[in-house]
Amino acid sequence: MFGSAEAAQAHGGGLISDWGGMYLTTAWGVMALLVLIAVLATRNMQKVPSGLQNVVEFLIEGMYNFLEGMLGPERVKKYFPLLMTFFLFILASNYIGLLPWVGHEGPEAGGIGKYIPPTANLSVTAALAIIVFMSNHIFGLLTHGLGYFKHFFSPMWWMLPLNLIEEVVRPVSLAMRLYGNIFGHELVVGSLLAMVPYFVPVPIQLLGVLTGAIQAFVFTLLATTYIAGATEKHH
């Protein structure tokens, strides 16, 4: 949180996507981290995994089996790379906010610091939501052809406006949910830090560990349900 309304004005006054600092730097940091882990885990792979390879395989396999229950054995193979990328990127982005020099800052800075987690910026989460929106419809078109548009007229033709509104609300709510949760968390920690610098923000920080994982999971889950709905075989 900014110390004064004037500071908020200086940071773009009302345009909430401009709040906070350098999200692109941290976004590139997250990407570099993920690539590094992927390279380290897959270099010199063994039949019986151990160490880092074991951890990564556990994570990937757990998510794969979970999504297989929702998508079925064929579709999960097709869409898993995209969905798992969402999960890993969002998880790493949320957790990078737990680092001491990212996100909230001490009382002298009054809240949001220079570096913020990428998901604490509306532009980043909106970009992710737009990817979900586009891929959802493209996968639907690839599966059903032009017959895909029939589902806008179901169950009755006069439901068309409602269906269209739903399609718009989906990416908006995806973006807002992720942004609001992560940015709100940083805001709460920053405000508490400004009031009581020691020990009091710790439980909220611990809550952030939970929130970060749940939000990454929920985003992936919703993207999966949308894609599952669009590519479902009816007949």
């Binding site: 309304a5 773009g12 006054g13 909430i16 709040w19 807002m176 949910r177 709100g184 929920v218």
Partner: peptide, 25 residues
């Protein structure tokens, strides 16, 4: 899934609050 949808409504409120806060000065 259900909790995510319900939570979205509060998050809308939070976003509105942030927008209003930006207009404060």
């Amino acid at each position: 899934i259900a909790l995510a949808f319900m939570e979205t409504l509060t998050i809308y409120g939070l976003v509105i609050a942030l927008m209003l806060y930006g207009k404060l000065g």
